Each structure stands twice: as structure tokens, then as C-alpha cells.
Amino acid sequence: MTASSTKTLSLAEVRGLAKSVLVAAGMDAAGSDVIADIVTASERDGPRSHGLRMLPVYAQSFTSGYANGAAAPSVEKIAPGVLRGDADNGYYQIAVAAARDELIALARENGIAAFTCSNCHHLGGLRFDTEPLAEAGLVALAVINSLSMVVPQGGVKPVFGTNPMSFACPREGGEPVVWDQAASMVALMDIRMAAAEGHDLPRPAGLDPEGNASTDPNAILETRSLLPFGEHKGAAIAFMIEVLGAALAGGTLSVDNQERESFGALNIKGGATLIAIDPSRFGNAAFGAYITRICAEIEGNGAARVPGDGRLKKRASAEADGVEVSTELLAQLNQLAQPA
């Protein structure tokens, strides 16, 4: 395979390009700021499959009319510790940003609080929804369901979405512990990146047209049938997220694809739940010391690392040196950034 040429962009240049693409696709100023920040943070921290490479998918959701580029989400308090949102057919990240301050206040008042949201789209890392809560001293758990493409263990057709989840908690004297992951063996955009870059996946992650587990990204993209991580255990997690996401919030089930198919979209109007916990209200004054001890038992333990901490090294490198972007992708994005 011939290596593609690249160009180094600063994070400020990444954000400017992302903002231009989103505005050209029909997003308003406020919403494009939120998504441009997430794209930039993905390029900075990884996985970069959720960064600039996601922009054409964002743009398609607006230019096709599937998503609302000028969404004005609503947030309603429906119980002492429960907020319910309607994202106005826009992106979930915009709705959760609107709910964040009230969610934090409710968690501190009650010890625990939750935000559910329907009528929302989501593309990108969920950790950008949990990390701000951990920075505020809270423990956070987020889930959202997505377009069906994960086959239940032993099944032959997709039932679940990649159904991501994220967890975050504060860490004394350091950055919060933050991780997110899909319920699939590999995220869809990582498969698309492998296909674009011309290499196989490191492990079987989906089914080929003959129904066999495969490492060939093109074969998996043809079937759109991904494998859950951990076999039946990952499928159980995907089921849980379908309940906590779509069912609890009233979002579209992953298998209900009819509307998105007419727009050619790569996501559905799923459901999301974000839970915030104030550890200071749970009776263990040594909570922070527990987190320090857990992390200390992992660090220096062979090649182990605290979940999510790989992003911190990537962050420092990207902030200092920028990120390498393929010139082919840049040409595509610069074209998308042109006013209609």
C-alpha cells in the first residue's frame, strides 16, 4: 500500500475547518460551536475516527434534511432528580450542554440525578458528555443507542446499535478518569478508516457476506453486521443500553430504521441517558483516596494503564505539535466547507 500524503494542522486550524464545514452544511452558530469543539477534541485525544473523518457524515445529516441544523432543545424537570430533554431533531451534544448546569445542581442537591433525551442524533465520543461532570467533582455514566448493526451472539442479523457507553470520575491531583467504548468489537468509524487506509482489522469484528467472522473491513461494511465485544457478554451490555437509552428516554429503537433509510443517514433518532452522582453525598469521605488507590494499583502494573488515560499522552502531543491529516481528506473537507 502506498502511504498517502499528509499535512499538519494545529488544533485551532482543525476547529476552524470543522466549523466551516458544519456552517456550510446548514448548522447555526451555537450548534456548530458545540460540534466543532467535539471534532477538535477527538482529533486531539482520539479516536480520530470521530474527528475530521466524521464531518462528511455530520454534513450529510444536515444537507439531506434528516437532522435540524438550527435545533433549539428543550429541557424539563419531571421529578426531583430527573431532567427530560427533547433535542428538537438536533444533535444530543447540544441538548446535554443545555442541561448540564441544572443536572450538576440536581446531583449535588439529591446525591444523584439523571438526564434523558429523545428526538436526538449522536455521532462522536460520549466521553465529552461525561468528562465535564467529572471535572465538576461528580461520577458520570452515559449511554445512547444507535443504528442497528450489531448482531446478538449466535444471531445472523443486526438488532442493536454499536450502543456506546461512557464513564467518568474525578481523580485527586490529576485529570479525571474518563473512558468510553462501543458495545461492538470495533466502532463503525474505525472499520471505515481501516477500509479507507487499506488494511485489515487486528481481530475479527464483523460478518462477511457468507456469515463468517472477518477482519476484512470492506466485507464487514458490505454486510453492516458487527460483532459485539466479549461475545454474549457484550451483547448483554448492548441490550442494557437499548433499555437505558431508547426505552427509558423514548428514543427510536436501533432496529427501527425506516425513516433514516429514506435520508441515507448513518444514525437514527435514538435515546440517551446521562446519570450524575455526587460522591460527597454517598457517605464515604475517603472516596478520592479510593480512586487514587485503584489507579495506583494499575499504574506500573506491567503494561496496564488506567482506562482512558491513553488520551492524555495523545492530548499533550496534539497540543504541542498538531495532528497529521491526509491531504485527500483535507481536499474533501475543503470542498464541503464552500458555501452552497
Results as ranks from 00 to 15, higher is better:
Pro204Ala: 03
Ala285Tyr: 08
Leu221Gly: 08
Ala136Lys: 02
Gly251Pro: 04
Ser214Asp: 06
Ala12Gln: 13
Asp200Ala: 13
Ile144Leu: 07
Gly250Pro: 10
Pro73Leu: 04
Tyr66Trp: 15
Ala304Asn: 13
Gly69Gln: 03
Gly234Phe: 00
Ala235Met: 08
Ile275Trp: 00
Asp208Ile: 08
Arg192Glu: 15
Gly155Met: 04
Tyr92Ser: 14
Ala219Asp: 06
Gly46Ser: 15
Trp179Val: 12
Lys157Trp: 11
Gly250Asn: 09
Glu131Leu: 09
Ala316Phe: 06
Ala249Gly: 04
Gly206Met: 03
Ala286Leu: 10
Lys313Pro: 01
Thr63Gln: 09
Gln60Ala: 15
His121Gln: 15
Thr116Pro: 06
Ala67Ile: 02
Leu55Trp: 03
Val325Ile: 15
Tyr58Gly: 03
Pro202Lys: 12
Ala213Ile: 01
Ile191Lys: 03
Gly206His: 03
Ala194Lys: 01
Leu248Lys: 05
Ala30Cys: 10
Ala205Ile: 02
Arg15Thr: 11
Ala182Asp: 04
Ser5Arg: 15
Ile94Met: 10
Ala213Val: 08
Ala87Tyr: 06
Glu231Ser: 13
Glu172Met: 10
Thr116Arg: 02
Ile35Thr: 05
Ile220Met: 04
Pro47Thr: 12
Leu201Asp: 01
Ser5Leu: 14
Thr162Ser: 13
Lys7Gly: 07
Ala136Phe: 02
Ser317Pro: 06
Leu266Glu: 14
Phe115Ala: 02
Thr63Met: 08
Ile78Asn: 09
Arg100His: 14
Glu102Ile: 12
Gly90Ile: 04
Ala304Glu: 15
Ala337Asp: 11
Gly270Gln: 10
Thr292Met: 08
Glu43His: 09
Asp208Pro: 08
Glu13Ser: 12
Phe229Val: 05
Arg293Phe: 10
Ser74Val: 15
Ala276Leu: 02
His121Leu: 15
Tyr66Ala: 07
Gly271Thr: 03
Gly161Lys: 03
His121Asn: 14
Gly85Asn: 09
Ser118Gln: 11
Asn119Phe: 09
Arg260Cys: 15
Thr252Lys: 02
Ala142Pro: 00
Phe263Cys: 04
Gly124Cys: 11
Ala276Trp: 00
Pro164Phe: 02
Lys77Trp: 09
